[in-house]
Structures are given as C-alpha cells and as structure tokens.
C-alpha cells in the first residue's frame, strides 16, 4: 500500500483497548461506506462530527482495522450532496424561547421563523437519546447559546436550538437547548419498520405550520 498523504489523512486514537476513534473530514462518507460494507473486526461504528468511533470485536483487532479503514478512506469519493435524502419537518413555531431567540438574532418573530425555515440543515449524527439528531447548517445569526441551567423536562416534539446545532427532542427528557417550536413528527417509533426516520447526511428543512 502506498504511503497515504495529504490534508485529509485520518488520525486514529485509541479509546480504551477495544475502540478506535477515527478523525477525518470524510467521517460521514466513511460511516455510509461501513454501513453498506462492514469491515471485519468492527462491531459497530458510531458517528459524531468529523469523527467515527469504531467498537472492535476484539481488542487485538486494532492494527488491522486501522489499515483497513485508511485503505477504505482512500477509495471514498467525497459526497457533498449528503445522502441525497430530504426530510421536511412541519413545525408549529412558538416555544417558550422563540421571542428571546428572535431578539438575540436581531429579527422580529416572523423574520426569525422565515430565516429558520430557509436554513438548509443536515443530519450530522444521532446521539443523546434514541432518534435525536444533531442538525448542522444553522447560519451564524441563528446559533443560540445553551441555557445556563438545563430544563428538567423538555416536552417530546420540541424543536430546539443549542450552540451550533438545531434538533428535535423525540421524547420528554431534560434539555439545555432553547425551545422555538413543536412538531408532531415522531423520530423514534418502534411500531414502524424503520423507527428512526433520518440518517447522517440527510438534508433537513423546517416548514412552518399554523
């Protein structure tokens, strides 16, 4: 194998004796590739922003997995278009923090809602609670500081902004993001064949409903 080089070179970091974190700007493409064609020795791949944590079948599989991942990355074509799937989330705007967020963005309520619905969001990764997606792509003025003290209970379906992220709480949990609306869409429904309706790389858009 020729020595790989370039700015897109992955870095590997052990996390204990049975997991490896791969940092690469192509983490999303790597995740999609590993889902389609699993690597021997990798039990599970868990994405986050620009990284993928690989849980190994055995602690001793590490070196072989590093080589295989580097080789796989070299074959990947960047997919700037994401997964090609689009998810429209109908939102009734009006949460407890909507006016605060609009003021923070220097907009009136209607303009703030319009700006949020115009944002081209994307699922970066899922985590925190079943079905919760971290959505990237908020324009700078729409990024909101998290609450100093998290709310003990955020209702299911709450549409929220926190730091660089947007998200929807699939069920009632504690939460520190600012609540700007509600959706009736269910993001974790075990009665469906696919309980979680989105995947990393999906394009997401909020659509205002009365």
């Amino acid at each position: 194998m020729p020595a790989p080089s370039g700015p897109d070179l992955p870095t590997f970091e052990w996390l204990g004796d049975a997991a490896l974190t791969v940092r690469t700007p192509r983490a999303r493409e790597l995740y999609a590739s590993l889902r389609a064609h699993p690597l021997p020795g990798v039990q599970e791949a868990v994405p986050a922003l620009d990284l993928l944590t690989l849980l190994l079948a055995a602690p001793t599989a590490g070196e072989a997995v590093q080589e295989a991942v580097a080789a796989r990355l070299a074959t990947l074509i960047p997919a700037p278009g994401g997964s090609g799937r689009r998810v429209v989330v109908p939102v009734t705007f009006g949460g407890p923090d909507l006016d605060w967020c609009a003021a923070h963005a220097g907009l009136d309520r209607a303009a703030f809602v319009a700006a949020l619905c115009a944002a081209q969001l994307e699922v970066a990764f899922l985590g925190f609670t079943p079905g919760f997606a971290f959505l990237t792509g908020l324009p700078e003025p729409l990024r909101m500081p998290r609450l100093d003290a998290p709310r003990e209970r955020v209702p299911a379906g709450s549409v929220a902004l926190g730091g660089p992220w947007a998200g929807v709480y699939p069920r009632e949990t504690p939460g520190g993001w600012r609540l700007v609306g509600r959706t009736a869409m269910n993001f974790f429904d075990l009665s469906r064949a696919a309980p979680v309706p989105w995947q990393p790389g999906d394009r997401v858009q909020f659509e205002a409903r009365a």
């Binding site: 204990g16 049975a18 974190t21 868990v46 922003l49 925190f128 971290f134």
Partner: peptide
Amino acid sequence: RPSVPNVPGLLQLPPDGRPILLLPDAGTH
C-alpha cells in the same frame, strides 16, 4: 467541548469533579 461517542467503561468527569463510570445503559454520546 463537542459531543463524542461513549464506549463501555469510560470514566466521565462532569464539572463537579465526581467521576462516573459508564455502564451499559449510558447515553451514546
């Protein structure tokens, strides 16, 4: 600090400094 994946047996250090050893039902990130 960004959210990153958890793995079994991780020792987490919240701001109050009292470590938490993660068991199987720990959150994913």
